[in-house]
Design a protein around this nucleic acid. Structure first.
Length: 471
RNA sequence: UCCUCCGUAGCUCAAUUGGUAGAGCGAGCGGCUGUUAACCGCUAGGUCACUGGUUCGAGUCCAGUCGGAGGAGCCA
């Protein structure tokens, strides 16, 4: 008797004897032929549960009749073509062993009924037993594998940048403090400040908001590198597309410009969509039917024409010239509002859009300063890119980096930052500087984009957000 | 953090002008059926988020607190 994963049982030859192990999704009983039970069993290896037919002549049939949603079982049996509709094959059970009962079926949180996503967030330890969260988990895994494979195929090295950082110059938002100081007895310096020299690292330290600055150092010797790991933002954000802890993919390429950067992001999206369509159709069909109609067509569109590139200056003209009513006006020099970004990718282009060359005053210090008059812009721009996608908004933020030390220093000073904090980052420009570019892709936003899931808290196993750190 | 809406049974929601709580699903028991969002009958299940106020009387009105959702800002 071979133990098969349920996904493999579905494709095994009828007549084969097998064992499967999993959790009961539903059970239906019939009095026909002296009594039999139809038990749908799922082990997470594929979307569909397999139907087990248990007859009354099994020695423990009385016990089997008491099974309900959530119980764990081991089933021996023979794979046969199904007599009923709704499935091609099923298992005629020769033995059903109950491994774990559901102790209180009346209050079992993942019972066989529709639940709201808000409720399931409160029982995140059990929500992967539902169709939706099982499918999200598999898609998330596949996307993660796709990214690693795509980058490995293109000779990128995965660099494990630190989670804890002593650098306070990452500049991408509020940071969580990391400390072993005793809250009840905080050491102070003579002038009344917290004495961080007595803290674990001998200086202030935080959870990283981005691995970019670290990964740029590896880029300046290994040429093509990326980080893919958790990042943290202590912003009090309460939206369906922000988390306090999220995973970010940050590639960095040497001897490259902004165009190469957009090309890389576009290729990565294409690889992700293509792999999903090839390997996770069962889950995609569920998302297409129950979560967002048209999600499969969207992924096919990504494979064919991933990203359309326009300049910020063009984007502003499109928004100013359209008939749409917006709550906020746009004007060159200010950041686009969510509603404008949504209009561009959801209504005007109806596909992912890379907006490049933003005004320098609304972007970070490390982004490369463009020449005066680039794309006929009325002011100075930097070689930055935001990739906007339907349903999610900003999926990718990136730029060509400023490789000229004098220009970089001027930008640091202009933005009121302390140049001494950037000593090691500036060394990269002093010693063999090269043009390079990179981007950050919000991994959960990618999962949202590929599944149609509305809330980012439902595409990460255990979401961390303001007032949410259970589990 | 700001704006809007919402907290009633295990879950999803009702409850008229303020008059002491109801359905569906789920669960238990029974019936029927190669069933599959199964169907039919019966049963159990409630500190109406919390605290205070108005009132003869509050799930309902008022204030505050806590929690949740949607949108905005910050961004990925």
């Amino acid at each position: 008797m071979t133990w098969l994963k349920i996904k493999d049982a579905f494709t095994a030859d009828p007549g084969v004897e097998l064992t499967i192990k999993g959790w009961v999704r539903t059970k239906r009983d019939s009095k026909a032929d002296g009594g039999l039970s139809f038990i749908a069993v799922n082990d997470g290896t594929c979307f569909d549960p397999i139907q087990v037919v248990a007859r009354h002549d099994l020695p423990n049939y009385e016990e089997i009749a008491k099974l309900n949603t959530g119980c764990s079982v081991e089933v021996d049996g023979v794979l046969v073509e199904s007599q009923g509709k709704g499935q091609s094959v099923e298992i005629q059970a020769t033995a059903v062993r109950v491994i774990g009962w559901v102790q209180d079926p009346d209050t079992y949180p993942a019972s066989n009924k529709r639940h709201s996503f808000e409720y399931l967030r409160e029982v995140a330890h059990l929500r992967t037993r539902t169709n939706t969260f099982g499918a999200v988990a598999r898609v998330r895994h596949t996307l993660s594998q796709s990214i690693h494979r795509f980058l490995d195929d293109q000779d990128f090295y995965w660099v494990h940048t630190p989670i804890i950082t002593g650098s306070d110059c990452e500049g991408a938002g509020e940071m969580f403090r990391v400390s072993t100081l005793d809250f009840m007895n905080i050491p102070k310096t003579d002038d009344g400040q917290v004495d961080f020299s007595q803290d674990f690292f001998g200086k202030e330290s935080h959870l990283t908001v981005s691995g970019q600055l670290n990964v740029e150092t590896y880029c300046s010797s290994l040429s093509r590198v990326y980080t893919f790991g958790p990042t943290f933002r202590a912003e009090n954000s309460n939206t369906s597309r922000h988390l306090a802890e999220f995973w970010m993919v940050e590639p960095e390429i040497a001897f490259a410009d902004l165009e190469d950067d957009v090309e890389l992001a576009s290729g990565m999206l294409r690889a992700c969509a293509s792999d999903l369509l090839e390997t996770r159709m069962d889950d995609l069909e569920f998302f297409n039917l129950r979560i967002e109609k048209g999600i499969i067509d969207r992924l096919k569109m990504i494979v064919e024409s991933p990203v359309k590139t326009i300049t910020y200056t063009e984007a502003i003209k499109i928004i100013e010239g359209c008939n749409e009513k917006f709550e906020y006006q746009v004007k060159w020099g200010s950041d686009m509002q969510s509603e404008h970004e949504r209009y561009l990718c959801e209504k005007h282009f109806k596909q992912p859009v890379a907006v490049i060359n933003y005004p320098k005053d609304i972007k970070a210090f490390y982004m490369r300063l463009n020449d005066e008059g680039t794309d006929g812009a009325p002011g100075r721009t930097v070689a930055a890119v935001d990739i906007l996608v339907p349903g999610v908004g900003e999926l990718v933020g990136g730029s060509q980096r400023e490789e000229r030390l004098d220009v970089l220093d001027a930008r640091i000073t202009e933005m009121g930052l302390d140049i001494d904090d950037y000593w090691w980052y500036r060394d990269l420009r002093k010693y063999g500087t090269v043009p390079h570019a990179g981007f950050g892709l919000g991994f959960e936003r990618l999962v949202q984009f590929c599944t149609g899931m509305q809330n980012i808290r439902d595409v990460i196993p255990f979401p961390r957000a303001p007032r949410q750190a259970e589990f």
